[in-house]
Design a protein around this nucleic acid. Sequence first.
DNA 1: GTAAGTGCAAATGGTTTGCATCGAA
DNA 2: TTCGATGCAAACCATTTGCACTTAC
Lengths: 152, 152
Amino acid sequence: MSNQTLLDRVRMQLEEHSHRLTPQREAIVNVLIANSEGHLSAEDVFLHTKELYPEIGLATVYRSLELLESLGVVHRLDYGDGQNRYEIRLGTQEEHYHHHLICKKCGNIGEFTDDLLEEIEKRIANETGFAVTDHCLRFFGLCKECQEQSDS
Amino acid sequence: MSNQTLLDRVRMQLEEHSHRLTPQREAIVNVLIANSEGHLSAEDVFLHTKELYPEIGLATVYRSLELLESLGVVHRLDYGDGQNRYEIRLGTQEEHYHHHLICKKCGNIGEFTDDLLEEIEKRIANETGFAVTDHCLRFFGLCKECQEQSDS
DNA sequence: GTAAGTGCAAATGGTTTGCATCGAA
DNA sequence: TTCGATGCAAACCATTTGCACTTAC
C-alpha cells in the first residue's frame, strides 16, 4: 500500500469518528510510516515530527498516538524498559505473528515471525472460554553479537 | 516445598552474595509466599508487609524486590498497566510455561499453562542465533464473564 | 570497624491533564 | 458558532536515589 493510500485510509478512519487529519497528525503518521520498523518511543516520534512540524507539542504527540491506537492505526509496544513504543499497522496479516527478541545486554530488539500462537489461542478459547483478541510475546536473552563478545 | 525450606533457600541465596535476610526481607518473602497466586504490585507488597512489619518503607520494598529478582527468587511481571507485579518463584518447571490472560474490560488476570513455546524458542535459536533465557507471553481479550455480560 | 540495610524525603521521568486558544465545518 | 485540536505548563504516579542513621558480622 502506498503512503498516500495509507494516509487516506487514516483520514477516513478519523472522520468516521468525527476526528480530523490535522497537519500535526499527518506529520506524525508520516514519521511512523518512515520508521515502520523503527520501534519509536513517544519522545522519538516527537523529535522526528518536530522536523516536519516544529511547533508541535509533546502532549499532541501522546494524544495523537493514543487516538491512532484506539482506531487500530498504530500498535503500542511495551518492551518493559519503562516507555512505550509505537509502530504503524500496515494491515498485513503477518504483523500479528511478529514477536520481539530483546537482548538483555545491548538492548537491541530483533524480530521473529511465527504463527504457532494460533494453536495456543484456539486452545485457550476451548479450555477457558477467554476470547483472545491480541497478544504480546517477548523473548529475553542474548543476541548473537553479545554472545560472541562473551565468548571472547 | 514448605515455607520454612523456601525461606532457608532464600537466606542461603542472599548470603551467597553477601546479603542478609533482614526481618524486613523475611516479612516481604512471607507476604509473597502467602500471595503466590496474587500478582501483587509493589504497593500491594508494601501494604501487606506493613501489617507484619509496620515501620517498613516503600523504598525498602522496591530495593528488596529488585534484589530478590536479581537472585531469581522473585519474578517481575508486567501487565502493561503501568506498574510491575511480583510473584515468588516456587522453583517448579511449570512456572516457565504459565502465561497470562488479561481481560481488557474488567482487568482481571487469568492464567494458562502451555509448553508450546519450547518449540518456538528452539526455532529462534536455530534461525537467528538469539539465545532465549526468558519470555513473556500475554493474551488480551475478554474473559468469559465479560463476554456473557456483553451478550445480554 | 566496615559494609550492608533502612526510612525518609526529594528527585526522576514517562505520561496525562487543565486550560485558554485556535481552526475548520 | 460550535466542537475538535493544540501548546504550554502543571500535575501525576510508579519508581529511584541521596543521605544520615542503624545493624550485623
